[in-house]
Amino acid sequence: MDHVLIGPAGVCTVNTKNHSNQRIWVAGRTLMVAGTRQRYLPNAMHEAARAGKLLSAAAGLAVEVTGVLVFVEPKGITVRERPETITVLTDGQLLRWLNRRKPVLTPEQLARIVAVAALPGTWRRQPAAPGDAVALQRGFAALRTEVLGARRRRAVWALAVAACFVIAVFKLPVIIAWVLPMLTHAG
């Protein structure tokens, strides 16, 4: 899941999808992006149900979770039939939708849910071992090195293309002056 929002209006799992400038079509359990069927609705339903189950077990109270699917800057969303358990919104609609929700949690429930949501053991069966943090740092370091290498290669290619362009612009008259007499003598 991308995000878990917890507030007086309840708990939401928010799954974001970047389909900028594409049309979204929703009808019940079917969701299509630019004419291609996607499994976003079942995945969002699963995430919300899983979060509800895990938070309920950890908090010792029934926690209902609303699944929200948010599309970033789509060309438009057409909803023929609203999905039963998932709310589909654009990024521009999310804040307004959240603000309109009515409070359903007491301050005590809210504090309890927030406290257990902050614990890694709530989301995993076994909390990460201390050695895992070191491995994770090594993995991020390797990823950072790979990204920096890709940036360098991209910069070298950009410079090479620019150099070829400059050479072509300044040497083109010389090349034309050299080739043109050959073409006129051949004809």
Rank of each mutant, 00 (worst) to 15 (best):
V70H: 01
T36C: 03
I77W: 00
T85E: 08
I24L: 00
L41E: 04
A51R: 03
E73Y: 12
V65F: 02
I24A: 01
V33Q: 02
R100K: 13
G52C: 03
T66D: 13
A58R: 12
Y40V: 00
E73V: 10
A118D: 14
P103T: 10
W123F: 08
V68W: 01
L95N: 15
P107N: 12
L54D: 06
V14I: 12
G52T: 04
G60T: 07
K53M: 12
V11F: 06
E84N: 07
V70Q: 02
A118T: 10
R124I: 13
Q93Y: 11
L89R: 02
L41H: 06
G28P: 02
P74G: 02
A62C: 09
T13L: 09
H19G: 06
T16R: 07
A51K: 04
R96I: 14
L89T: 08
V116N: 11
W123P: 03
R124V: 14
C12T: 00
Q93M: 13
H46G: 13
I24W: 01
L61Q: 10
A118N: 13
G76Q: 08
T16E: 04
V68S: 06
H19K: 04
V14E: 00
W123Y: 09
P120K: 02
Y40H: 05
T13F: 05
I77G: 01
N18W: 06
I6K: 07
R50Y: 10
R80C: 01
M45F: 15
L98N: 06
K53W: 03
S20I: 07
Q126L: 12
H46E: 12
K102C: 14
E47G: 07
L61F: 06
F71D: 04
A111K: 11
G60S: 04
L54F: 04
A111C: 05
C12N: 00
D91M: 08
G28N: 00
A9E: 10
A118R: 13
T122K: 00
R101H: 09
P83G: 08
A59S: 10
N15W: 08
P107D: 12
F71K: 03
R124K: 14
A111F: 09
R112M: 08
V26Y: 00
A115Q: 14
T87G: 10
